[in-house]
């Protein structure tokens, strides 16, 4: 019983730990995507700003702040949200431009092209 359980555990462990390296080497799974990470970071920051705006509206709704205070703080938060949206758009546009350039260069280098877009 002990031997069976331990053997099973060791086998599962080896497979689970080695598979990511194997998959990366054989191209089955793509792990690194800095652009995606960057965009996710911006999205998180945007959600925080939206949450702040929600809280601000509630404070105002409960009459815990004056009209002037509310307007000033809301304007600041909205500016920040707009900045983040602009950043997010830039990341997307830059990523798309880089991908297009890579596709174009691959088309020049490889006889059959290498674009994922063409294949799809």
């Amino acid at each position: 019983m002990t031997i069976i359980v331990i053997t099973l555990l060791v086998l599962v462990t080896i497979v689970a730990l080695v598979y990511p390296f194997w998959a990366a080497r054989h191209g089955g799974v793509s792990f690194n995507d800095p652009a995606r990470d960057l965009e996710a970071g911006i999205r998180r920051a945007r959600n925080r700003v939206y949450e702040e705006i929600r809280a601000l509206q509630q404070e105002y709704f409960l009459a815990n702040m004056t009209e002037a205070e509310y307007r000033t703080q809301l304007q600041t938060a909205r500016r920040r949200a707009a900045e983040l949206i602009r950043e997010q758009r830039q990341v997307r546009e830059t990523t798309a431009a880089i991908e297009d350039r890579v596709d174009a260069e691959l088309r020049d280098v490889l006889p059959g092209g290498g674009s994922g877009k063409e294949e799809s």
Partner: peptide, 24 residues
Amino acid sequence: PTRQRAAAYAVPPSPSAVPGAEVA
């Protein structure tokens, strides 16, 4: 958990369409 509104994840068509963006 607070449900995030779908709009919070969407990228609007252009930054200028976002209220306050023109101020930045």
